[in-house]
Design a protein around this nucleic acid. Structure first.
Length: 234
DNA sequence: GTTTGATCATTG
DNA sequence: CAATGATCAAAC
């Protein structure tokens, strides 16, 4: 796979959705090794100690504002960027992290004003071959998919979010497991299981508890990818 | 410690 | 063998 010079050096922030999508399409068919080399990045042996590497590489290729804090990757375009590891058949290999879950200060927050909805309003999915048996440098970038939840999908997300949020507000955060929710789930999001943050206990009292994050289940991601257009790595 | 980027790896 | 709970690294 060598189609000459195409994407060199970190990109500037795209000024329009068209420009962003054009760049995204230009990545299709390149290997992660080629993209990394073009940027002068080393390729790690595997992702065990570099779990966010692919996402950061794609960010740099598309000109996302790196390391930014709470909002979307392209605030001016209203677009959140997500790389999604899949098999050549289009099956997601991992759940998708959405954002941290607020455990306090939830009074007055609704689905409409939630971080989850804000992040998922418009997502640019970059499919990447994520098979572990495939050497990292040889993994192919696939087609980009710009997605906005259908009314049905949003209703599912909203229902999951409301169920989880209500449990958090009522002090049942430690009883919520990854099994809750159809599309959205709540799971640990921390350096390790000893990390603690502030939460609310059963009697409304402050407690120390494991930080959690919202994740999209693979079944939901797979459905949305296939609805958008039959996904393939190449 | 928190939030970004996620994948790892044990368990059912 | 998928899914849940655990974990890794960087920026701040």
């Amino acid at each position: 796979m060598n189609r000459g010079i195409a994407l060199k050096q970190p990109q500037q922030i795209p000024h329009s959705l068209d420009e962003l999508m054009q760049r995204a399409h230009q990545l299709t068919g390149y290997t992660l090794g080629e993209l990394a080399t073009n940027l002068g990045w080393p390729v790690p042996k595997d992702l065990r100690s570099a779990k966010g590497w692919t996402g950061q590489l794609i960010e740099a290729c598309l000109g996302a504002s790196a390391g930014s804090k709470p909002e979307q990757d392209f605030p001016e375009l209203g677009v959140e960027l997500k790389t999604i590891p899949i098999t050549p058949e289009g099956k997601p290999l991992e759940t998708t992290y959405v954002c941290i879950a607020p455990l306090t200060g939830l009074n007055g927050v609704t689905w409409e004003t939630s971080n989850v909805r804000n992040k998922l309003q418009r997502v640019l999915w970059i499919t990447v071959d994520g098979r572990r048996e495939q050497p990292l440098a040889e993994r192919l970038v696939g087609v980009p998919i710009l997605w906005t939840p259908t009314p049905e999908q949003e209703a599912t997300l909203k229902a999951d979010w409301e169920e989880i949020t209500e449990a958090i507000v009522l002090g049942r955060v430690e009883q919520i497991t990854g099994r809750h929710g159809i599309a959205l789930q709540l799971r640990p999001k921390a350096a390790n299981s000893r990390v603690e943050t502030q939460g609310v206990g059963p009697d409304g009292q402050p407690i120390r508890t494991l930080p959690r994050g919202y994740y999209l289940k693979t079944s939901f991601t797979q459905a949305l990818l296939h609805e958008a257009i039959g996904v393939r790595v190449e």
